[in-house]
């Protein structure tokens, strides 16, 4: 028990006066996951719009695929991205393996189906009367689509927050493609795994507390958005 209490005390001290390494790890985690989710959102919204409003063959199949991919195992994504970007892989010439960029790509693959599927669900759930109202008030098809997305904003934001929560917490994909290189590709989850393995618990616990705080913040925002969406 003494070593646990000692590790916790050391972790809290580290949090109170964080060193450059801890801050760097937290910053990289937020940058990688934030970039992945922003990129996923930018591409997922038009894709969700196409899935919601256009008729085309295989639409149902694509929707099922997005729903299935919401639960993609991060290690599988990591392996796939590794095979593609490793030196002997088809995109190996880009020399992205073991860089933060390829970590963003891996997390993008995890986030994209989540944002797409939840946004699609939110968009098709918009009251048809609202869509008719936009049309009768003179909206062009593009303005009507923007209006629909505005109406679905709480659902879409829920999807974005859910994706952020998922990629912030995953370890398998970034570990495989990033290589957990100190000061370069080491993020919170991979550091926790490594430090726990080494038996150096203070940094692991400190990062665990930060990760839990981020998770709590994301879930609080999610809860707030869902409450707001339901109330209105």
């Amino acid at each position: 028990m003494d070593f646990l209490a000692d590790a916790l005390r050391q972790a809290l001290l580290l949090l109170v006066s964080p060193d450059a390494e801890l801050l760097g790890i937290i910053a990289l985690s937020l940058a990688v996951s934030g970039s992945a989710v922003v990129a996923a959102t930018v591409l997922a919204l038009p894709f969700a719009s196409v899935l919601a409003f256009k008729r085309f063959p295989l639409k149902g199949g694509l929707l099922s695929l997005m729903n299935t991919f919401m639960g993609l195992p991060p290690v599988v994504v990591g392996l796939l991205v590794f095979l593609i970007f490793s030196r002997s892989g088809p995109l190996g010439f880009l020399e992205l393996i073991y860089t933060p960029y390829v970590m963003v790509i891996a997390q993008f693959i995890l986030a994209f189906p989540i944002v797409t599927a939840i946004s699609h669900s939110a968009v098709v759930g918009v009251d048809p009367a609202v869509i008719d109202a936009a049309k009768t008030l003179g909206a062009t098809p593009f303005q009507k689509t923007i209006t629909i997305f505005k109406e679905a904003r709480y659902g879409i934001l829920s999807g974005v927050m859910a994706a952020l929560g998922r990629v912030m917490a995953e370890v398998g994909a970034v570990l495989i493609v990033g290589g957990n290189i100190r000061g370069y590709t080491r993020v919170m989850t991979t550091t926790i795994a490594l430090e726990a393995d080494k038996g150096d618990f203070e940094l692991a616990i400190a990062l665990g507390i930060v990760l839990l705080a981020v998770s709590l913040l994301i879930n609080s925002v999610l809860y707030y958005l869902q409450r707001k969406g339901k109330r209105q």
Partner: peptide, 23 residues
Amino acid sequence: LLLPDIGLFNASVLSNASYGLRV
């Protein structure tokens, strides 16, 4: 056309009233 199912937007009263003007 004002429909029986009026479909107000989830926004302020002013935003609803100005929608047609803004588009």
